[in-house]
Design a protein around this nucleic acid. Sequence first.
DNA 1: CAGCCGAACGTTAGCGCTAACGTTCTGTCG
DNA 2: CGACAGAACGTTAGCGCTAACGTTCGGCTG
Lengths: 358, 358
Amino acid sequence: MMKRHYPTLAEVAKVAGVSLMTASRAINNRPGVSPEKREDILRIADEMGYVANRAAQKLTGARTRIIGVVAELHTPFTSDLLLGMGAVARAADYEMLVYSLPVCDRRPPHSIIEMLRQIADGVIVILPYESDYLESMATAHIPVVTIEQGIESAFPSVTADNYQGGCSALRHLIELGHRRIAFISGNDRLTSARDRRRAYRDVLAQARLPYDPALEVDGDFLRKSGFEAAQKLLALDDRPTAIFAANDTSAYGAIAAIREAGLSVPGDISVVGFDDIPIASQLHPQLTTIRQPLQQMARASVNLLLALIAGLDAPSEQIVLPTQLIVRESTTPLKAKRKKEEAVKMGVASVGTANLAR
Amino acid sequence: MMKRHYPTLAEVAKVAGVSLMTASRAINNRPGVSPEKREDILRIADEMGYVANRAAQKLTGARTRIIGVVAELHTPFTSDLLLGMGAVARAADYEMLVYSLPVCDRRPPHSIIEMLRQIADGVIVILPYESDYLESMATAHIPVVTIEQGIESAFPSVTADNYQGGCSALRHLIELGHRRIAFISGNDRLTSARDRRRAYRDVLAQARLPYDPALEVDGDFLRKSGFEAAQKLLALDDRPTAIFAANDTSAYGAIAAIREAGLSVPGDISVVGFDDIPIASQLHPQLTTIRQPLQQMARASVNLLLALIAGLDAPSEQIVLPTQLIVRESTTPLKAKRKKEEAVKMGVASVGTANLAR
DNA sequence: CAGCCGAACGTTAGCGCTAACGTTCTGTCG
DNA sequence: CGACAGAACGTTAGCGCTAACGTTCGGCTG
């Protein structure tokens, strides 16, 4: 068994018969080396299995070609986002390391940012629901890009267009003929949740549909809250014919409650979610939802970070990417419903629509 | 804006009025410092917000108190495993960084292991289905622990007891009265898949039930394969009353096929999965399955790695942890089924079970 | 041909830290 | 009281690498 397995640059240089610095220049593709020697050195380094020591590189202030990511692994679509980011990073000859944020984090976040700073050239933060990382990052001398889950930040960030997505969801339901549409909100501390709520109200108004506070139930993005919210909605005298849930997880919670009440989705109630989590296309019913552009978000965030690392001191840029309505099984035109109920609903809708008529 | 944000050890030492080495000793809790001075130094370091530079520590050959994990993020229960490992590591004052293995990895794995070696004190590898990481790790001078998804390895490893789990699954079905039980296999290149298949055959034999090759359909752990396998099974003249799928994902694939054929689970066919992926308790029907002891696996693997790092050169240990049968909605006693069908099945079973008795 | 320039190298210092070895000082014992 | 042990420090070297600055030398200009 050898003493040290991977050769150092000095060893490569020695074998190649050049100085340390020449080898460094050759390997880092810097000028100042003749083409033949460069080729020689690269070949020898390859033969010897040379791998640059990133710890040493970082120590000198050079690039390590590693990006760090801080993320909560347990949120639904984080893994897809990470896979996308990893692919983009690798394409740019960068490696990616992920720090898994614990669910309840009570340790000083600055030490984590600092740890990543010692290793990586830049950091992407997928913001958790609650976070005091922002202030730590502000003082860290390292490029940071945030993936918004909805907290405003002073950093360059990438986010999905939650407002537009919410509008699409609601317009879809309205186009299907629904008039009495409920909303199950997310955690309003997040701008993403607020944007989706705003979209709900705005589109209702635009469509001249009445706004009924009883149809707007507070949730927190979790399955259980969707379940309970739907129960409240079902208990209404005049229950909705469609529900827009602020995310897929709570949408499925709502669906469970609807079914438990002996009703069907979309037969009795149409449901639209938000996110397009992977299982949304596999569960029964397949969920109509708003797809977050994860691949584009991954690409945009990595590219933005690499630009910052490269020194292009971009003014703190906010990239907003379009979402997409994915129509699946959980929504259906109102007309497909039972005649009697339809009649009732239409009557009710007309009540709200115009306070003059009837 | 300050030039450098986090102070170096030298700066802390200067403020404390001691030498660099004394500060180092104090902070690393080494002997050779008087109690008062130690306290002084620690207080000052804390006030100054000192964070040790792990890159520099690693360069000198010291511990960084970081463990690396190589994992495929897109497999179902990886995130739970990672969360568990992170918690255990943090409890031991270690941080954890995850390298997300791309789905199709064509870059030399040794450079990734080497990268982690430069940063971390040890590595846990959650083996992907196919992997040539093993040979690279063998030559890396760094403690490695593998979480088996079923490839034999020469490393200390932690794995769930797949054979025992498979036995429990099958015994459960037999206890429910099922006699005609099908198996949808996993990728047999993995020992986990082979162990589960072996359990299927062994328990059948133990129960003196006939082995019918037509009931053993090849799959690959994916949803689609479960779907197609179930279709084959349903096409049989004498279709099974229960299915044991090698994992939850393919079990849900099978359920989808069963439903598409107009049959119900568990009304017509009972289904058992393996893994207990998080959604198994949320999907409809909630899946009866074999739970992998993820928390225990996380704990065991991290503790094993820390022991190796601490220099306890444990002989390459294989830890096998017990699985647990979780009974939910997807299985039901055979008696609950339609009388007519039951009679038919029992007749068939008796033919196979004993060519003598009855 | 002196002078100079720039490409192609080599040398030096230092990133932040720790191991290994000095140095100082106090106490202790024959 | 000298020798010596050992605790409490300080100093030096070096981990692997790169920035910054030397050095060499061929070639070009006037």
